[in-house]
């Protein structure tokens, strides 16, 4: 498992370089009829390395039912969180497949905040950002099926992340300080 992860990690690094070289934020490594086999989730990576998302593996997990994750666009619309298709079935917006197509990657930038504040509609008001959508959706499922559950189970932490968490080589030096 660890070896495989390392391998993936190494491969991922080359792909990241390629991404930077070609100015794209999204890689479709092997195109299949069922979508990309690997997706690199890096639009919000800072404290963590980009996620090497094994799309092909997750298609297997979902037993080819795309609607399990693409909750409003492909297959039968799920009844839970994804009720967008109920209104948008005949609109071009229903052709959007990628998560980032609907979920904002930076809802806190000036542009993002403008978009969010202009959402007046009942169902749009509470739409999670890209980060929120990933973590709410992925972790909820991982909990059920015993998938990786810790932060570093899905993405390695960067040195900047270690400093942020005061962890690793940035761990507090003093120990046993009296507490109030």
């Amino acid at each position: 498992m660890v070896d495989k992860k390392k391998m993936l990690h190494g491969g991922g690094f080359i792909i990241v370089l390629l991404v930077i070289a070609f100015g794209a934020g999204y890689v479709q490594a092997i195109e299949t009829s069922e979508g990309p086999a690997t997706i690199i989730l890096d639009s919000i990576a800072e404290y963590y390395e980009p996620v090497q998302f094994d799309h092909a593996l997750h298609i297997e997990f979902a037993e080819n039912d795309c609607a399990k994750c693409h909750h409003h666009t492909i297959g039968t619309p799920s009844t839970g969180t994804g009720n967008c298709i109920l209104c948008h079935k005949k609109e071009a917006i229903s052709k959007i497949i990628a998560c980032r197509g609907c979920h904002l990657s930076d809802p806190y930038s000036p542009e993002g905040r403008k978009v969010v504040s202009e959402r007046g509609e009942v169902f749009h008001k509470d739409k999670p950002s890209l980060k929120g959508a990933y973590h709410q959706f992925c972790i909820a499922c991982h909990e059920e099926v015993d998938g990786p559950f810790t932060c570093t189970g899905c993405h390695e932490r960067t040195d900047k992340g270690d400093a942020f968490f005061h962890s690793g080589k940035h761990a507090p030096k003093h120990t046993g300080t009296p507490k109030h």
Partner: peptide, 15 residues
Amino acid sequence: NKEQQLPEPDKPFDD
């Protein structure tokens, strides 16, 4: 802790 420039914590934040 980062934003408010607070002192170093007693334990790492991933503890």
